[in-house]
């Protein structure tokens, strides 16, 4: 698998895939996409990088252990539901904030935070499975 072409291309490919996964994540509220599918794309980016350049370099690149990333995703996903507490609304009621940056309206919301949580959970969980399998292979 570790041909020179693949090894040269893989880092760029992975970077592009991560970028694309974030694009898919952000467009997800009203259009096809979202945290889950974005997370899957990002996890496959990690897997490709791992196949090409070794699992150790992936682990260095993402700094945190994948399970830690998944834990963080779960944490902010749960926090996103609590925001409505302060408005006297039930758990998980969505809250929206419309920011104006240079005349462009940017809608931010708790569903987005929740979606980012889902994204991180999927990246962490699938990524750690993929990395564990690749590690086993290279033993």
């Amino acid at each position: 698998m570790r041909t020179i072409i693949f090894r040269t291309i893989a880092p760029y490919l992975s970077a592009l895939m991560v970028l694309f996964s974030i694009f898919v994540l952000l467009r997800g509220h009203n259009e096809p996409g979202g945290g889950f599918i974005g997370g899957l794309i990002a996890a496959s980016a990690l897997a490709i990088f791992g196949v090409a350049c070794g699992v150790a370099s992936v682990r260095r690149a993402i700094v945190f252990h994948p399970m830690g990333i998944a834990g963080f995703g779960l944490f902010i996903g749960a926090l996103a539901g609590i925001v409505s507490f302060f408005k006297g609304q039930p758990f998980m009621t969505s809250q929206w904030w419309y920011l104006k940056v240079f005349g462009v309206e940017i809608p931010l919301s708790t569903p987005l935070i929740f979606d980012i949580g889902v994204y991180l959970v999927v990246v962490g969980a699938i990524g750690s499975i993929a990395l564990a399998l690749e590690e086993r292979e290279s033993d």
Binding site: M67, G68, G71, G73, L79, G81, F85, G88, F91
Partner: peptide, 24 residues
């Protein structure tokens, strides 16, 4: 919704937050 009704989701929330924190 009265704040006390949030006790309904409190058990799942506390364990979810605690579990993810311990995981990190």
């Amino acid at each position: 919704v009265p704040a006390g009704d949030w006790l309904v989701v409190a058990p799942t929330l506390i364990t979810l937050l605690g579990g993810s924190l311990c995981l990190m």
